[in-house]
């Protein structure tokens, strides 16, 4: 009897989940693909090779790669710091790491404008640097601004993935290695890194996925279509243009982003599978 009622519950739960996912995820995504190719392959490929799209793809990739590199470095440093050292204000730092999770990305973007924009307090400093180096860097309404905004929103992903691993592992192995005279870098490379390897990779994948799709923060600091727009902004612009052609183009570009997301997802699953296998060994 018990077995039977358990089965009923199981199937009801499965049914609810499947319907939910179909309705909320699968169907809308298929809609994207379907609408993208609704006007034929020629329109589709034309939309993908349009100058604005290519530029947006470039900006997206640049922002993602830089955010990934920067956040991998600082994420590991921050995680290492809060798990292996004791110092005053450790809890505050730990909370600060999470801020991008809780603050709306738009606010982050606006904050960057207030700091680095024309009237921001950091502008004189940047002007000075530009003067000295003979460059013309500006941090808002430009690609560097997009990069900064992307870094901000994706910052917690990597450190949050590896902090629990480092916590669980404790300090003993590192202490043992340091007692034997190993340098900090050797300890990280030989002792700590093998522990966090899979977690780090997983965090990097999440970071990438988030960087691809970021809209709010980037929207605040990027206003030049064809120059500083990322793929999500380009899609928004096409859709907002309102003509039936541009809406189809919006879906075509969307399908590109969906494709990139799927690739990341596949990577994520491979990493999860490998990490699990490693764990079982």
């Amino acid at each position: 009897m018990k077995k039977k009622s358990e089965n009923v519950v199981k199937w009801i739960l499965i049914g609810i989940s499947v319907v939910f996912f179909l309705l909320m995820l699968v169907w809308p995504l298929f809609e994207v693909i379907f609408r993208a190719v609704a006007d034929g392959w020629e329109t589709y490929s034309a939309a993908l090779t349009a100058d604005n799209t290519v530029s947006a793809l470039q900006v997206t990739l640049i922002a993602t790669v830089i955010a990934l590199v920067v956040n991998t470095f600082f994420g590991v440093v921050a995680a290492w710091l809060v798990t292996k050292f004791d110092f005053r204000g450790k809890n505050v730092l730990s909370t600060l790491i999470d801020i991008p999770f809780s603050i709306s990305p738009v606010i982050a973007g606006l904050a960057y404008i207030m700091t680095f924009g024309r009237s921001g307090w950091a502008t004189p400093l940047i002007d000075k640097i530009n003067e000295l180096l003979g460059t013309d860097i500006s941090l808002v309404f430009s690609v560097p601004g997009v990069v900064l905004a992307t870094i901000f929103v994706t910052f917690p992903f990597i450190s949050r993935e590896i902090i629990p691993i480092l916590h669980a592992q404790g300090k003993d192995e590192e202490e043992a290695a340091s007692m034997m005279g190993a340098s900090g870098f050797t300890i990280f490379r030989k002792i700590t890194f093998p522990h966090i390897k899979w977690g780090l990779l997983y965090g990097m994948i999440l970071c990438t996925a988030r960087a691809f799709g970021e809209f709010g923060a980037v929207y605040a600091v990027s206003k030049a279509r064809g120059k500083t727009f990322t793929l999500p902004l380009e899609i928004d612009a096409l859709y907002m243009a309102g003509s039936s052609d541009s809406i189809t183009q919006a879906f075509a570009v969307s399908s590109l982003l969906v494709g990139m997301a799927v690739i990341v997802l596949v990577f994520k699953n491979i990493v999860e599978y490998k990490a699990k296998k490693k764990e079982e060994e």
């Binding site: 192995e173 043992a176 007692m179 034997m180 030989k190």
Partner: peptide, 20 residues
């Protein structure tokens, strides 16, 4: 520092390097 005192240390849970 600990690393230069020339002391061998056996930890309570041994702290063997798991991946070696």
């Amino acid at each position: 520092p600990a690393s230069e005192r020339g002391i061998g240390f056996v930890f309570q849970n041994y702290a063997l390097f798991r991946y070696m």
